[in-house]
Each structure stands twice: as structure tokens, then as C-alpha cells.
Simulated scan of single mutants.
Amino acid sequence: MSHTLGFIGLGVMGGSMCANLTRKSSKPVHVFDMSADAVAKAVEAGAIAEASIDALAQRADIVFLSLPSIVQVEAVCASLRDARGKVRTIVDMSTSDVARTRALAASLAADGIDYVDAPVARTAEAAIKGTLLIMTGASAQAYASLEPLLACMGSDLLHCGGVGAGQTVKILNNMMVFMTVNALAEILTIGRRAGLDGKTLFDMLSKGSADSFALRNHGMKSLVPDTYPEKIFPMAYAIKDAALALTLAKEAGFEPHIAQHTYDIMCEARDAGFAQNYHPAMVRVVDGRIAADKQADKQADKHVDTRASHPHA
């Protein structure tokens, strides 16, 4: 395949994915991102920097996207189409709305551009190692042609069906993780209040039928030490993906209870100031700390108001 590649969106996941694509594909990879630092890192890995989306469109015939949401994907696709360059295939590796993905694919097809959804799962470390799970929605022919390139970034590749099928699987995968983290937060809270050490509890659970990736990753690495750093799949991103899952349910005429409850908990955590923190921070809602903080703030405000109304007290 004598293709020239493009990559737009060099964030926590996209930057590492692009680096693997550049090193392993043996093809020219032209890159663009709003972050100069991100572009510089891509160039260090062997990519070719472009000053704009329009410039990239003149040089790449297959363009990969790794962007925050369908809003940015639609905008970038419009720019690629308007550039009337070499682009013939766009591969969206973001997590995007299913209905809008299919509508975008139909619109681009009218201009002779093939659109494929190939969202990824697993951690930032997996992105670095090239061991992501990639779920693809595309025709059989399009998938076959892209498979060698996707293999540069992922160790497990799934052809889920036609356009939009990859996004459907990815959205449900993420929703399952969020619900599992919610369940782990409840179990941890019950265990601690019953006098158990959280680390010991989760270590024991990992030896039996309660074991899961979420328990070993989200649970042991984040919930137990109670650490929720920024720039690791933040609450705001999780809420976006959960909303996509709820939209799928609504379109199917189904009212999910666990998914809706988990979404509401994450929204409460976001509103309490954890929008940019790793999403297992939802435990602070589950175990009551956020409610306690709110009550403390109300008491403090009441005390201030009382002193203000009685300045000589």
C-alpha cells in the first residue's frame, strides 16, 4: 500500500498512537495539532509537521483522527473536505455519537471520501505499547485495507460491522467500565465501614470470581489509594461517553437504571469540582464525602452570614 498518512489530534492517546503508526507503518505520516509541544513530540518520532488541516489534506490520502468528541470530528472533517486535497479515507479513532457518525459517513461518501469509525479501548500505557483494543465499523473491504495500519497501534482488532458499529461497541464498553467502578466504590465503602482495609479487600476479591480488569486497574491503582490525577480519562470525558450510552438506550426504547444512576453520580462529582480528575473519583459521592463537604460549606456560610448580620457579636 503506497499511501501517505495523516494524523490529527495528538493528545494523551493520539500522540502515542501516532508515534506507533509512524514507527511501524514505514509510511510518511503528516500531523497537525493545536499544541506545538504535541507536534514536536510527533516530529521526534519521525512524523512530518503541517501548519494547518488544509496543508495536511494536500499531502495525506488516509487521515486518522483522535479528538475529544463528534463536535470536533465533524469540524475537522468539514475542513478536510473543503480543502479538496488528496484525502480519500478518514478514520475516526475518537469515541463519537453513533447517529452523527453514520450521518457524517453518508455526507462524506457524496464527495468520494470513505469514513471509518475505529475507537480504541484500554489505557494510555497500552497506547504507548501499541496494545490497544480497536473496534472498527466499516465495510469488509475498507477494514481489510486498513487492518495493517490499525495493527501498528493495537494488538486486538475487531471488525464490529458497518459504519457506527465500532462506536456502539466502544460506548457500551466504556459504560460497563463506569458501572463497574461505581459497584467497586460501593463495595469499598461497605468494606471499610465494616472494618476492612481496602487494599486487603480488593486483593482478596482479585483472587476469586469477583476479579476484573476494573478491579485491578481502577480499583487497586486509584480507589484504594484514593488518588485521582488529572489527564487520565477525566470525569468530563466519562460523562460524555455515558451520555452517548444513554442516548443509545433511549433510541432503542430502553430505560437503564444502573447506567443512569452511574451517570448521575459522575455528574455530581463533576459539579463538586472533579471534572478533570480521573473518573473513579465518583467514589467521593458514593461514600458520602462530597455530601459531607457540601454540608460543611453550608454550615460555614451560615456562620459567616450570622456574623455579618451581628457585626458586634
Rank of each mutant, 00 (worst) to 15 (best):
R84M: 07
I290V: 15
V181C: 03
L244I: 10
L184P: 06
T95K: 05
A144H: 13
S209N: 10
G6A: 07
F178D: 11
P234M: 09
S107T: 14
K41R: 15
I265P: 00
I171Q: 00
G14S: 05
A275R: 04
G11M: 03
A103L: 14
M175G: 11
A210N: 06
K298D: 14
G208S: 06
R284G: 01
T136Q: 00
A19L: 05
P119N: 03
P225S: 03
N20L: 04
G14R: 00
P225G: 02
A210T: 04
D82C: 02
L104P: 03
R88P: 06
T262N: 13
V98E: 02
L5A: 09
R193H: 13
L108S: 07
A99H: 12
G11S: 05
C18W: 04
A165Y: 03
E255N: 14
T95Q: 09
G162A: 10
A19P: 08
F274S: 11
M179A: 15
D264F: 04
P148C: 07
L201Y: 04
L201V: 05
V285Q: 01
H303V: 11
G154R: 00
T262H: 13
S139Q: 08
P280T: 01
A238N: 07
I90F: 01
P280W: 01
E44K: 14
